[in-house]
Amino acid sequence: MLVRFWGTRGSLPVAQKANVIQAKIADALVAAGGRTFADVSEADAFARANLDFATYGAYGGATSCVEIEGADGAFVVCDMGSGLREFGIDSFRRIAEGHPPVYHLFLSHLHWDHIMGFPFFGPAFNPAATIVIHSGHADAETALRRQQEEISFPVPFEWLKAKFQFVVHKPGETFDAAGLTVSMVAQYHSHDSYGYRFEKTGRAVVYSTDSEHKLHNMDAEVVFERFFGAADLVICDTMYSLGDTLSLKQDWGHSSNIVAVDLCHSARAKRLALFHHEPTYSDADIQRMHNETIRYEELVRADRSPLEVICAYDGLEVIV
């Protein structure tokens, strides 16, 4: 399988302002220290070797949308955040190269940041496309139709040309979607949310976002330890610090970087992707959180195998 991140930001899309880009360029020039480069590729090689990601990169600002490649003849995508628009455009390119116009879209929940990309999802206008929307919510179709109503958007759902199918699943059931074995877990979040586990040929990817692990219900985390069990990649809501989730942001429905590490440690998962980044965080803030999470994993690892901690960004591809 290959996991491709189209949107990794939580709650609200964000964009870089000019002063942020200017600061990155200035930092790069200082790091170059007056060097000259024969061409762009030489400059690129220098920058990659000498600059951190927050300077020579960006975590991106599109909201939740993660593609999982590896299904049989279908696109598989988790959530329809603003990253879905760019995925939809890219899927047209791949369809032109022979990929079937079949989409399996999995919804963690129906909050705006997780469905806001749908009105801009080009394949919805393709009469040859089949779009299967999987959810744990019986009102998923209502949420998408309501978003298209005239008060919010000029294109009603009835104008869409693709063939739609809404499938509601129950937590605990295992089902097949285009050759992937999929299971679902209920999560604590306003109006509920659901995590998904995708398995194929002995590999497992878990998508668990917008999931708060409650202070007074730590016993319940055994469910997540099993759900994450030995997964090759766990994509986890790590929006806040633990201190934040237990004070000002308690009951906001989100988790912390260090609870994610502990769950993955208990589950013997192999790799954790930090995800659903706080929209007020700068690239430097997210990079600092990433470095701190790597350090925390080392501090509490004990005799376990190392858990690799990566930080998702828009455009990241991970081979599983």
């Binding site: 610090s241 633990l242 201190g243 934040d244 237990l246 004070s247 912390s256 970087n257 260090i258 701190e292 999470t293 350090r295 925390y296 501090l299 509490v300």
Partner: peptide, 15 residues
């Protein structure tokens, strides 16, 4: 030192 780092990373020094 290990616990001091954990307290800082978790922002428990704010609590």
């Amino acid at each position: 030192d290990r616990m001091r780092q954990i307290i800082e990373i978790s922002r428990y020094d704010m609590l």
